[in-house]
């Protein structure tokens, strides 16, 4: 279903967004439109405000100015259409619970207060685990998962939210090549199904292969648009300064340096 998906309203519209922690601005007056059915990367150096951008879209941080609309509405109203994958390191993986239970948490939003997940929810959770090839791990204690498995579980949890818009904070962080391929296949499937997917991403080399839309961020927005148009040397240099070495002016994969993943809050 694509309810308010008129051609004019973007999936996500960020207007004049400024976020500051105390008096330190993390995002300065950002305008950003994310169209429907794109797979978008948010890239930028450490401390560029990428995580903050995702959190502002989810209304998890209070902006100093500006607003975000998702599917033409405030987040409070579009909440049920938004799936979220936080950074893997943001939770305690020694928490006493198992994989299926974590995936079921994705259903809590649809359930609302007090109501418990039922058989139908379990079925959805198991289907999502099937999609990320983790069905055999449903009963596994979460502390026994590898980094890649943790990331798959988080992805499955977002899938059961059955959203229109997915916001993911570093879904590829600390995963092996197999998992990375598995995840990107699922993300591309989501896009094919008409969903909008936004990922904080660190590996500049894979941007042209994985994504069709990109936003370059460094506290302010440097550029955003189709990868083919805006993912170029000039914008990368503007975003990263001298910190990225470039192979050639018009290479499809212009950047060689991979900035290490950061953990902003």
């Amino acid at each position: 279903m694509t309810a308010p998906a008129s051609a004019q309203t973007p999936a996500i519209a960020v207007r004049d967004l400024t976020v500051a922690y105390d008096d330190r601005p993390v995002l300065w007056d950002v305008d950003l439109d994310v169209p429907h059915s794109v797979l978008m990367a948010i890239v930028g150096p450490n401390g560029a405000g990428k995580t903050t951008m995702i959190k502002a879209m989810l209304n998890l941080v209070r902006p100093a100015a500006g607003q975000v609309e998702i599917l033409g509405q405030s987040y409070q109203k579009s909440r049920h259409q938004v799936g979220y994958v936080p950074q893997r390191g943001s939770v305690d993986w020694d928490f006493p619970t198992n994989v299926l239970d974590v995936v079921l948490m994705g259903r809590y939003g649809a359930l609302g207060w007090i109501r418990r997940p039922g058989e139908a929810d379990r079925k959805l959770a198991l289907q999502a685990l099937e999609k990320v090839s983790m069905a055999d791990f449903a009963e596994r204690q979460i502390s026994q998962l590898s980094g890649g498995q943790q990331q798959r579980v988080f992805l499955a949890r977002a899938l059961v939210q059955d959203a229109q818009v997915y916001l993911m904070d570093e879904p590829f962080q600390g995963v092996d090549a197999t998992t990375e391929r598995a995840i990107i296949t699922i993300l591309k499937d989501l896009r094919s199904a008409g969903k909008t997917v936004v990922c904080v991403h660190h590996d500049l080399q894979t941007v042209p292969d994985y994504f069709d839309w990109v936003a370059l961020l460094n506290v302010r927005k440097i550029a955003s648009g189709p990868v083919a148009e805006v993912f170029n040397d000039t914008n990368l240099r503007l975003a990263y300064g001298g910190r990225v070495a470039f192979l050639s002016r018009d290479s499809a994969a212009p950047a060689t340096a991979q900035p290490t993943p950061d953990y902003e809050d």
Binding site: L60, V82, L111, I114, R115
Partner: peptide, 22 residues
């Protein structure tokens, strides 16, 4: 018992709890 689900989510992943409206 009533808020078991909410307590679990808010304890395990406060960010998702907030995003989901709990």
């Amino acid at each position: 018992t009533l808020f078991y689900k909410e307590l679990k989510l808010a304890t395990f992943d406060a960010g998702l709890a907030a995003a989901l409206g709990f």
